[in-house]
Design a protein around this nucleic acid. Structure first.
Lengths: 345, 345
DNA sequence: CGATATAGTGCAAACGGTTCCACAGGAGGT
DNA sequence: ACCTCCTGTGGAACCGTTTGCACTATATCG
């Protein structure tokens, strides 16, 4: 059907091996032969069959991205879009293709990953954020597949991973509110089985402790990374007899929910409640008012993850490479946190 | 290295062909042999090598999605995330993997597609929205590769495509504003080389004409599918001696820019200006005020595209399948367009 | 000038499957 | 008892590459 290396060889009057060597720029091929072969390739419209190449080289030049379980909702999050953009950009730059896989149940997820990696369809995987117990991580680790975790694993500390210093980032965010004069600061967390939730909670409490501020259980609420969670958290806080004057919120989308709820109830931000949130996706800038948000370099996370993964694929077994990559964070201050709160009465 | 079909064959005391037949559920294999082989596969942890399978079957069970050229910005658009979600969901359901490719220049784009399809790395491609002249469409069409266009092509009317009836949708959106009493309606268009821009413009003018309303060149501005374009359009309109009282806007992100600008200048929506926009991405619902938006079934577009593509791949040459799929639209009315405008003085 | 290195190329064996064809053995028909 | 058909299986070719090894011709050297 399509033009193969043999067709080119025949037409150019050389052997298939020679054509193959021309393709891989083997130095042993003479200048003229090389040129002749290239001319024929052009003439016949030859394109190397990647599948055949993969079969013999045992390598596919592609990686996959495993989206986390509740991908249905999270897919809507700009966070993932930005992350994927970073991954695809860097991967393509290194000559790799990126395959997106969205799991269903955890079991299906492991099966999908197994199919892709054991089935030799991809050379490695990128995992987006990790829960405390993650069967996919277990699987990859046990089968010795190259992979990189965006986030971190407590179970396998020596795993290849790209992450922020979330403890420090949350500390910095909280510190910002404290420096504005806030003394009653609440925290809207993500799902407790996500390590990132616990890291940020820790940073928050560290900052409070250091400042000698009150830490109250009822000023910490858990939720999903969804707008609705923010709405619910807001209701909860605003019905409290003693309310916080500022919130540290796990995600911009959640903050948007908070904002929305406050608006409906007639409260104003930052006058009635200050907000500092995380991730700094474009929504943070576009909302009214714009939300102060901790930029965690999402694109950079994806970019670095792809880079680290490909490096680890290409230099397999090489132990000299950096295992943990920390992407810097940076607080972007906007209207949601510029005012000093009323002093506690 | 890894377990092959031969290892399984040897261990089970059968020939490789038999194992292969068990794998493909060939009916000629006896129940007991089949079971024995399956047991051995389980025991040895066998996983079929997809690459080898692809080589002989000349099929990869994967498709690629080509993101449009200025992917850097568009990537940030929830539109694409939602579309990709639809594509991935349906593809996975049919046993296909999805590969994301983001082109650089048009030339690079064609090269990437050529590498993927001519190189037999994927079986088909999905193109997201099309410009009037699209070298990638030309390439795919000329080389006879299976592909589906999300959008439509004027050059090749018989191409497999999934689209909205954008003329009708824009007509409906405009009609909605007219029914609210608006007589001076502006239009914020997308790039003029996108067919979707021209279709929607047509629907808009159709509606105006039918209602006997004035159609003014200076009430139509072009832009990108970006927030900034909305901001600029807004400045333009608000500096006009005679301003429209309502706008039809090509994209929610653009509307957000309009909203933002109006807010800065102290205008109020919908009191000073009504807005109806397109796509109904989540931003439309989350903005303040929420934006009336034409839901075009983005997920459905992606879902249907994947379905149509896979169908066309599997039944190659079969001409009996539907070529043009039209996804229904539905106007979601929100606060940005609920008030009747002031009567023209 | 013969030995040896070297550049340039071809042959054939993989890589891990699928599938056409052949074939053995038993069932069923006459 | 013979022919035919069917079931279940094995053998081997093939898919389009890469690559180790062998080989030839020329260049280099003592």
């Amino acid at each position: 059907m399509s033009v193969t290396i043999k067709d080119v060889a025949k037409r150019a009057g050389v052997s298939p091996s020679t054509v193959s060597r021309v393709l891989s720029n083997n130095s042993r091929i003479s200048r003229e032969t090389s040129q002749k072969v290239r001319d024929v390739m052009e003439e016949l419209g030859y394109h190397p069959n990647m599948t055949a190449k993969s079969l013999v080289s045992k390598t596919t030049s592609s990686i996959c991205v495993i989206l986390p379980k509740p991908a249905e909702e999270l897919f809507l999050n700009l966070f993932f879009m930005e992350l994927i953009r970073g991954i695809v950009t860097q991967a393509n730059r290194s000559g790799y293709d990126v395959l997106i896989s969205s799991g269903g149940s955890e079991k299906e997820e492991v099966e999908a990953v197994s199919r892709l990696l054991n089935g030799k369809r991809v050379d490695g995987a990128i995992l987006l954020y990790s829960r405390k117990e993650d069967p996919v991580v277990d699987f990859l680790q046990q089968n010795g597949h190259p992979f990189v975790l965006i986030g971190r694993s407590e179970k396998y500390p020596d795993i290849l991973s790209v992450d922020n210093d979330n403890i420090q980032a949350a500390y910095d965010a909280t510190k910002h509110l404290i420096s504005l004069g806030h003394q009653r600061i609440g925290f809207v967390s993500g799902p407790p089985n996500h390590i990132v939730s616990r890291d940020r909670l820790k940073g928050y409490t560290n900052a409070l402790k250091e400042a000698g501020l009150e830490m109250r259980k009822d000023w910490i609420v858990e939720g999903e990374f969804l707008q609705e969670s923010g709405y619910r958290a807001m209701s909860f806080f605003m019905n409290l007899p003693e309310r916080p004057t500022a919130l540290v919120v796990m995600d911009d989308l959640v903050s948007l929910g908070v904002l929305r709820g406050l608006h409906e109830l007639g409260y104003r931000v930052p006058d009635d409640l200050c907000i500092v949130s995380f991730n700094n996706i474009s929504i943070a800038e576009l909302s009214t008012p714009p939300i102060s948000s901790m930029d965690i370099g999402i694109y950079n996370l994806g970019y670095t993850a792809a880079q680290a993964l490909i490096q680890s694929i290409q230099h397999d077994g090489d132990r000299q490479f950096q295992k943990r990559h920390i992407i810097p964070h940076r607080l972007v201050i906007r209207e949601s946190s510029i005012f000093t709160p009323p002093k506690p009465s």
